[in-house]
């Protein structure tokens, strides 16, 4: 009985996504961002079913330190995002822009990222 209950909890919800296509329209990978310029992080996430949210993050490519992140738990088959990051680094920094989509109710995720080079003043 416990096994059946466990199965019912962990089994796939009908209509949940099993994969998603993440397109990052801006910026281009390895773009150089001048000091005081704004990084426009734009793109889309298209699932083959219902997804359970997504997260955008701006992090240091080497240390993994996260400078900013945005999370949503909105359920949808597709998302469009347009967020911004203002370059005010005092040292040359490789920045990782990451998109992470939650595919199903179990929390299975898929992601895509690019790096851009942020220049100091």
């Amino acid at each position: 009985m416990a096994f059946i209950a466990l199965l019912s909890v962990t089994s796939c919800h009908k209509g949940d996504a099993t994969s998603a296509t993440i397109d990052i329209m801006e910026p281009m990978a390895n773009d150089t961002i001048a000091y005081s310029d704004t990084v426009h992080f734009e793109g889309t996430i298209n699932g083959n079913g219902k997804m359970y949210g997504y997260k955008l993050s701006f992090a240091n490519a080497f240390s993994g330190d996260e400078y900013a992140s945005f999370s949503s738990e909105a359920k949808a088959k597709s998302y469009a995002f347009d967020e911004h990051w203002h370059n005010q680094f005092s040292d040359t920094t490789m920045l990782t822009l990451k998109v992470e989509a939650t595919l199903d109710h179990n929390g299975i995720k898929t992601n895509k990222y690019i790096n851009v080079l942020c220049l100091p003043q």
Binding site: E42, T44, S78, Y79, A80, F81, D82
Partner: peptide
């Protein structure tokens, strides 16, 4: 409002 044809 829509971005790339998806509601934003």
């Amino acid at each position: 409002s829509y971005l790339f044809g998806i509601k934003h």
